[in-house]
Nucleic acid binder design. Structure first.
Lengths: 220, 220
DNA sequence: GTCTATACCCGGATAGAC
DNA sequence: GTCTATCCGGGTATAGAC
């Protein structure tokens, strides 16, 4: 047995075994659900573990502490959360670009409402853990995309509008359907997962934004 | 001393002494600040008491428990929160009415952002304590005001629009400035308390809503 | 009517067996 | 890698003195 094969733990690229990866993923998903619903203080490690199908202690084997989990979740969703805005293209026409952006944001509100609510929660508490990201990355991104809008204005393609307010208002309208989902359901019995309602929301937001910048939305 | 004057505790209309009233008010104000910032679970009775300038035990003399305080705060702000919508008047012209409504909502976001955030917080958690109010009062109110908007449409005064989405979008845009105040401050360095920024927000929202329903906002 | 002291419970985190 | 047992801190709420 001398010189025998060593206990081969296949060293994967990230240094994690398959089950480790899977467990981490399950934890992050469960944590997103809990944090977004109950806020940071309102969620317990035990609940997250329960949702993820494991024991509290086992969870604490993967993440050393509660803040660690929270930050991992936030980091995990931030990229996908900001992705749509990055795609605003100055070289295409504003009606197409703005419509596409709104549709993407509404799609995210439909498919990942928890991410929206987690983000809202964090910001409402003063954004203690994502201050940096907002001040640096997001601020830069918004400045960049404001330039795109100013470019459209200068080219006479859309009406004179404050770019920053325009961006804020698009965020407000699209994220509202995720953040206030409960209220919307109580008042209408529907949410973005209903195709009809989703279409109604898309039309309402797009109509408002396009006419708001002086474009007349076509019937599609 | 026989038959002397009895220790006269003036029985006030609500059965509360002046200091009791004042203390209750101070507690409610402090509680609003804490709950809106840290959510229900994130705030402690001790913090509320500190903000209200009294001891934890003394606070618990006025409110028996944490949920009691929370419900009192919610109830206290709900009326004022829904007041602006009640004023939408079908007999005046839509441009005036919608502009006034938006301005009132933005005023509330400027002066009582905590109320907005508390409300958002509660709804995002599934509205466990105000389900009733939403299902009954608010639902009725929205139905009533949807009729107002349909009335304007039928009279040819505004473009065909889904009334419920219109209401949601006005809420979304106006409340966003309170709920995401932190983010807005980090990105622009301003908030609704700055007169210039407030004016910019009013113009942006009013322009968007009015043109969205087919009205051209005048330059004021 | 207000404060001090304290009981009690719950959630986060660790130690150590398996 | 996963579990059980347990510690510890903090937060709610109460008992009782003043």
């Amino acid at each position: 047995m001398s010189g025998a094969k060593r206990q081969s733990k296949k060293q994967r690229p990230d240094g994690l075994s398959r089950i480790q990866e899977m467990n981490r993923a399950k934890i992050l998903e469960a944590a997103l659900g809990q944090f977004s619903r109950f806020g940071y203080s309102g969620t317990t490690i035990e609940k997250i573990a329960g949702e993820a199908g494991m024991s509290k202690s086992n969870l604490l084997y993967y993440f050393a502490s509660k803040p660690d989990i929270y930050e991992a979740v936030l980091e995990h969703i931030l990229d996908v959360w900001l992705a749509p805005l990055r795609m605003l293209d100055p070289d295409r026409d504003p009606a197409t670009e703005l419509s596409a952006y709104i549709r993407q944001k509404l799609q995210m509100s439909a498919e990942l409402p928890e991410a929206s609510r987690l983000f809202a929660n964090e910001v409402m508490q003063g954004a203690p853990r994502i201050r940096r990201v907002l001040e640096e990355d997001l601020k830069g991104l918004v400045a960049e995309k404001s330039e795109v809008i100013r470019h459209w204005i200068a080219a006479g393609k859309i009406r004179e509008t404050d770019p920053v307010h325009l961006i804020f208002l698009i965020w407000a309208m699209t994220q509202h359907y995720a953040d206030f989902q409960t209220q919307i359901e109580l008042l209408t019995g529907q949410n973005l997962k209903d195709p009809d309602f989703r279409k109604g929301a898309e039309e309402a937001v797009i109509a408002m934004v396009l006419s708001g910048v002086g474009l007349t939305p076509g019937p599609a």
